[in-house]
Design a binder for these strands. Sequence first.
DNA 1: TTGTAGGCGTTATCAG
DNA 2: CTGATAACGCCTACAA
Lengths: 337, 337
Amino acid sequence: MATTIKDIVERTGLSLGTVSKYLNGVSVKPKNKVLIDEAVEFLDFKVNLFARGLRTKESKSIGIIIPSLELTFSTKIVAITEKYLAQNGYVVMICVVTGDEEIDSEKLQNLVNQSVDGLLVIPPAKNRFLTTWLEKMKGFIPVIVLDRYLESNVVFDHVVVDNRQAAKKAVTRLLLKGHTRIGIIAGDKGGYTSKERLLGYQDALNSQGVSLKPEYIVYGDFSKKSGYDACQELFELQNVPTAIFVTNYDMTVGALECFNSYQKRIGEDISLIGFDSAEISTILTPKLSMVIQPVDKMAEFVAEELLKAIREPENVKSKSTVFTCELLIEDSIQSIK
Amino acid sequence: MATTIKDIVERTGLSLGTVSKYLNGVSVKPKNKVLIDEAVEFLDFKVNLFARGLRTKESKSIGIIIPSLELTFSTKIVAITEKYLAQNGYVVMICVVTGDEEIDSEKLQNLVNQSVDGLLVIPPAKNRFLTTWLEKMKGFIPVIVLDRYLESNVVFDHVVVDNRQAAKKAVTRLLLKGHTRIGIIAGDKGGYTSKERLLGYQDALNSQGVSLKPEYIVYGDFSKKSGYDACQELFELQNVPTAIFVTNYDMTVGALECFNSYQKRIGEDISLIGFDSAEISTILTPKLSMVIQPVDKMAEFVAEELLKAIREPENVKSKSTVFTCELLIEDSIQSIK
DNA sequence: TTGTAGGCGTTATCAG
DNA sequence: CTGATAACGCCTACAA
């Protein structure tokens, strides 16, 4: 392995400084340029990032902290940012956090030990520990937080979606189709995203003058299983809702399974709107209506933002950026006759 | 940032060597132990992996090379290995390769520049370039190849699934239900996985004495769209098959969309067996029959294997490990009356 | 534009 | 068991 700058020096007869400088973009005599290029090629030279990092403190790597890789949302964010960052010479390190402090603290430790140049974070529902950890990190490297706000006195750079508006739009659509008994499968009671989506639900009811029935609000925890359970709860009400709004992807899958178990037909028996992934929509009969987050745009935005922050740390100001969701309407919602 | 061993030295009055050794597990006087521990705690010392790496050549990181993050198979492998490796102090770097030589070569370059300690590879269909690149790497760090064999004179450590057997089992099941007009949506013509699964299909027909009809074999490229197109092709045959076997996840999704477009009912109109993901199975009505790869087991196995290879490079021998798929039977296949 | 030399934070060797 | 000292490979003043 290991051909070093010294080898280049030997082959070219130039000095260490000159070679190093050229390798870092400082201009040298055209003749030497050719000389070095040839040597680099011939010796198959690669910089040793350890040595470079020891001096520069830069690792050319980005840490991505996510709650799971089994959620299309996180996965897509990773996929797209990886592509973008790679184009700029960065490598992406994955760190899946669970919310369990003991496990997470060690993993985060490993990550920061690698001296990542920046952090992209999709916080899990339970993020107390992560938040305080990030507060410490923020002093040293850029941190961008995606998807949900962190409850912290420190101001982070946030990129989120207009959850409340999106939920309102979805539920309003149901109302306009004549539904009044509308169930909502909300996320965990405390969570920001969860709260916002629930507020949107209430907004919609309010603005259409439909009264809120508490039994139609069921809480899950954004997991598939909780979606199933919540859906079941709704099915077993005296007055089963005529439409259900599920507020994230996994719970949508859970609810669909529940529809299956109870042999309820989507649309015909009960209308359904899900969240997040268009892909799942198209394989169902009828197709599923969905609130779609602009994941691609968001991912590209955060990647750009992060690179900017790394390159020009001086003029970074933490701000909130809000993206708008789209409503995909299919036959899974039908009019009440 | 940056508290270094020197700071510990200052605080404890010990020497650099002693502190470093203790930090690396060499035993020291109990009294000094306490002293160092206290200082580490107090000063919040963290090793600088740049400096360490410069000496040891180890980065405590693993590179994972995958064709996509949007395939459950790859994603799951990443998720599970990340968990396992993290427990052992390793960090995971993602590198998505496309098959496009120009892009890939740069990304792979970045990855190896990070001096990863090992490589976990799920090769894309087009892997000529990757293969020659891996051949070079194999001399320096452990490489484990997952999912498909590489066509190379160099012997790699391979972990695959009994594709042929699995396909045979699936198709046999269809035959036993009385189907004789069985379509197969195969992957790309050249690919290893693709070929094996097709061979299994042929095995099944042969062993049941059913003659092979070429028009029932349609090739895709393992992408969703190609699954749709292939399925369409089958639908438009004079003699539409009574059952279809789709040979990977994405094409299964594509085929399902096609069923939707053509208003074909799964099971009732045409029986269907898909590949890979149990999750998708349960949200459909009727549930989808599937060939299920033991992803979890495989992932854990490769992670262990890789760590072993890193720790004891001396007694590594490249071998092939084959895992067995399971057949999940649901109502998406029905008997021919 | 080029060359020289010092140091980044660790580990490893070798005496003590 | 402990302590000094020399690398590891690169960048970056500074001087030429």
